[in-house]
Amino acid sequence: METKLTIGIADMKMAKGSGMLITYALGSCIGICLYDPLIKLAAMIHIMLPLNMEAGRQNTMKYADTGIRETLKQMEAKGASRARIVAKIAGGAKMFEVNGGSLGNIGQRNIDSVHLNLKKEGIRLLKEDVGGSVARTLLFDPSNGMACVRCYGRPELII
């Protein structure tokens, strides 16, 4: 059986060449797969919020901006090249229709921030499955760069 690496909330893990990266139940959170196809190095991040405004910035993987930046740094340290790294993302849903307040659009703000930060770092976004109102489980296969999105009441989607 191949090894499965589970990425929790505000977490990041890397795998090279084999195994499976998986993160469960992305609601307004976003799962970001970063992949260097030449050396088959993959990283998956599960971010929760768009911008890191915390003093001390301890929990970098909780946020889109510091999460992406820190992960790219760690991938480069393992021999990945920024010019080759591509991204696939899923999540950013709106789980509840609540009128008023900032609660409803955390998902959309996460999507915008991930787009912006990938662009800023010069990373090409290959495919995405974002928005809507469904929770998603995201799987990524480092051997071939394929991502799969699993939802309740919807067939699996390959991205």
Binding site: I9, Y24, A25, L26, G27, S28, C29, M48, A93, M95, V134, A135, T137, Y152
Partner: peptide, 8 residues
């Protein structure tokens, strides 16, 4: 939906 996403 998935309860992980609801708790989140």
């Amino acid at each position: 939906d998935m309860q992980g996403a609801i708790m989140a």
